[in-house]
Amino acid sequence: MLEINDLHASVGGSEILRGLSLSVRAGEVHAIMGPNGSGKSTLAQLIAGNDAYTVSRGTVELDGEDLLPLSPEERARRGIFLGFQYPVEIPGVNNAYLLKAALNARRKYAGLSEIDAFEFLKLARDKMAMLNMDPKFLNRGVNEGFSGGEKKRNEILQMAILEPRLAVLDETDSGLDIDALRAVANGVNALRDPDRAIILVTHYQRLLDYIEPDHVHVLSEGRIVRSGDKSLALQLEEKGYDWLREAASA
């Protein structure tokens, strides 16, 4: 589904990704781990279309289509979803309004009619119940005054409603207490589907106790230095990233 090949990308003149290649098939959950500054968030932002990053080499394709010339909204309509590490507060923009506008943008692209108000409300309420979210969040400003955990749940709510083909969740586990982590993990697990792929960007193995990945990759200095199954995450937890750096340089 997602094919990244030899990707080089820089921001403000400094190269962050240095020949990253990654292949994600439908139905898979991939975890991308790595130390601070290894390029994890850059990769997530780049897949979503943030034009702050300059791609100097390599390709990113979704189902064979070149993603790089597409705007963020064109990617979203094709089913790419980025769960932000730091969800943006947008005072004055109603959460329900954004959810509905986002869903309708995706439906319109798919040739479907706009969802009607009742149907939307039912859908939103169902998904919120799954995430243990108070329905009152629907009528608040987008992430306005939300706690860290509430913001992350709101990201997962958006994902659950949009039903993306490819979800990239950037450190969705950071700053969550154990209840919020479980709620978020339930939301992600409920979306596991043979037609959908999920990329989890995370620092910690903890999230992977709740969402079992099919593949684990370690990113270091802008490229993937090790790939394996979920046991790789446990090894990392035990030995730290230095172990891999040493292994890589040996």
Partner: peptide, 27 residues
């Protein structure tokens, strides 16, 4: 950041701008 956030949710650039400016005025 807000503009990019809205666009990753499928809103086109003009719609995202309308929403943000409208929110400012809407208060």
């Amino acid at each position: 950041n807000a503009l990019f956030y809205l666009r990753t949710r499928g809103l086109d650039d003009a719609a995202a701008r309308r929403l943000l400016i409208g929110a400012h005025a809407g208060k």
